[in-house]
Simulated scan of single mutants.
Amino acid sequence: MLRLLVLVLLLANLGYYAWTAGHLEGLLSIPPSSREPERLQRQVRPEIVQIAPPADSPRVPSPAATSAPTPQEAPASPASPASPASALPASAVAAAPAVCLEIGPYTEAEYAGVEATVTQALQGVDWSVRRQERGGVFLVYLGKYPSREALLRRQEELRAAGIRAEEVRSSPQLEPGLSLGRFTSRDSAESRALDLANRGVRAARVITITPAAVRVQVRIPAADAALHSRLDSLAPRLLGRQASPCSADTGAST
């Protein structure tokens, strides 16, 4: 009995499927279709129908709207007032100010080796060479005296005239003799000797104890950026010396 019931249900399902699929169209009436294709065939100008999105959904721009550049995206014109090139014309760019530069220091022997390079590099430019003595010891000296007694008499005469004189020691080639002052530059020593001569001590003379080291500096009072760059490129030929800002205005120029 159960098998018969299952068989009846199976045949009923197959028959219903064949009817709804249209396989029994000639025998039975056509079942109603949920797709309703006949309504689609009766539409007039369906291409103009647009489905509006829900009110709370984001609005998607149309392809035509996205293809057109917005005012912010439009490229700036070369003649735009905001262009830096037009805002800063070449005539408004000021040249860098000229500055005072020095090259050195050199010894006299070193400067002799670079003098030709310096002269060639600074053609047409205002420049000068400054020499300054440093590290020397110079003595304003009276002597030698025939004996120490003669030295002591002369020392007493100078003391009476208000001139301080000291006996020279540890320098056999200058003993017996008197020192009227030690100086680190020859100019200062010669100035002292001239002052003593005006006071009646005309035999005083300047003796070099330690020769001064002469420092040579090349000075360019007004160097522009191009000249500064050229001098830097010549540093290997200038014994590694590079141009630097000028120091205090000292020393004699030649």
Rank of each mutant, 00 (worst) to 15 (best):
S191K: 08
T66D: 05
R202M: 12
L5M: 02
A21R: 15
L7A: 11
I163A: 05
M1R: 06
G162A: 01
L40M: 08
H23I: 07
E73N: 12
L151E: 00
A18H: 10
S171W: 00
Q50I: 09
R130G: 02
G136E: 03
V118D: 06
A225F: 06
G143M: 00
P89H: 12
L152E: 02
P84F: 09
L27S: 11
Q72T: 07
A121S: 13
P53R: 15
V118L: 07
V214A: 06
P54V: 11
S128T: 10
G143K: 00
T250K: 10
T184K: 08
L139Q: 03
L196Y: 10
A213M: 13
N198V: 08
E156M: 11
A90P: 03
T208G: 03
I103R: 02
Q217H: 05
P71G: 12
T20R: 14
R148P: 01
D232Q: 11
A204I: 08
R215T: 15
E108M: 07
R131C: 08
E167K: 01
N13M: 04
Y111I: 05
T66Q: 04
P211L: 04
F138I: 05
S171V: 01
R35Q: 12
P146K: 09
E25L: 02
G104N: 09
G113F: 03
T250A: 14
V214Q: 05
P84M: 10
P78K: 11
T107P: 12
S128K: 06
A82D: 15
L158Y: 02
R241G: 00
A18G: 14
E133I: 04
P75S: 12
V216H: 03
I209P: 01
A98H: 07
G136C: 07
S29N: 06
L88M: 14
D249P: 01
A116H: 11
C246S: 05
A55D: 12
A150H: 09
D187W: 14
L101V: 12
V6I: 13
I103Y: 01
P32A: 14
Q120R: 15
E38Y: 09
L5R: 03
P58V: 12
L4D: 01
A213C: 01
R237K: 10
S233Q: 15
C246N: 05
A85I: 13
F183D: 02
A52K: 12
